[in-house]
Every structure is written in C-alpha cells, then in structure tokens.
C-alpha cells in the first residue's frame, strides 16, 4: 500500500481527509498542492513531510462539498495531463532544434 488515510476524520464527513503517501516527498507534494489549491471548491490543501528521516508525505485536503478523494483523483489526472503536455511540447521542440 503506497497510499493510506490518516485516522481522525471519521466524524467530519468525506470532504476532509489526510492521505499518507509512502516514499514520496516535496517533488510530488508541492506539484500536486499547487494544482489542487487552485480548484474552485477547495477550502484548504497542504502537504507536509512530517520527519526528514521518514520517507513519507502527508497530504491534507478540505473542501466545501466534493469528497476529498474525488479532488485528489482530479489532481492526479490534471498533473498527468500537465506531464503529457510538457513531454509533447518538449519533444516537438527538440525535433525542431535538431532540424536546424
């Protein structure tokens, strides 16, 4: 299991969750936070690496209505799209550059 839920949000409905990612760090945390923070229905989104010697990252989402899990999934989908787009544009530019 690479993703788990942190206990403590059982009474607060599906809109608030903290997810724990094993073997992840600022690389994924900050990029994902940067997208999710910009969503319309998100109240709060943040991440932390609780201890530098432990290889994990906590990711917190609080929203108005949408379940936190939905938002997290959407975040991953958008980040994936950003990556795809970056690769496409970059490879096109490299091809152009090599033609010259």
């Amino acid at each position: 299991m690479k993703v788990t839920e942190l206990p403590g949000d059982e009474d607060s409905g599906p809109t608030c969750r903290t997810y724990v990612f094993q073997n992840e760090s600022h690389t994924l945390g900050n990029a994902l936070k940067c997208i999710i923070n910009r969503y319309e229905d998100v109240d709060f989104c943040g991440y932390t690496v609780p201890h530098p010697a432990e290889n994990k990252m906590h990711f917190r989402i609080q929203s108005k209505e949408t379940p936190a899990l939905e938002i997290l999934k959407r975040g991953f989908q958008d980040l994936e799209k950003v990556c795809e787009h970056t690769i496409d544009v970059f490879e096109k530019e490299v091809k152009e550059f090599n033609k010259m």
């Binding site: 899990l69 999934k73 980040l79 994936e80 990556c83 970056t86 970059f90």
Partner: peptide, 27 residues
C-alpha cells in the same frame, strides 16, 4: 540531457498513473 528531462517528466506522469490506479480501488 534532453532524454534525461523527458525521463524525469515521464516518471512524474507514471507516478500519477499508479496513484490513480490505487485510489480507484480505495474504499
């Protein structure tokens, strides 16, 4: 170097994919 950059972005993309797969199995 151009291959290294593409590989780096691919790693992030694949991470997103595998987390999405895992989250779809959640609950």
């Amino acid at each position: 170097p151009n291959v290294i950059f593409v590989e780096a972005v691919k790693i992030l993309r694949d991470k997103c994919k595998s987390f999405l797969d895992e989250l779809n199995k959640f609950n």
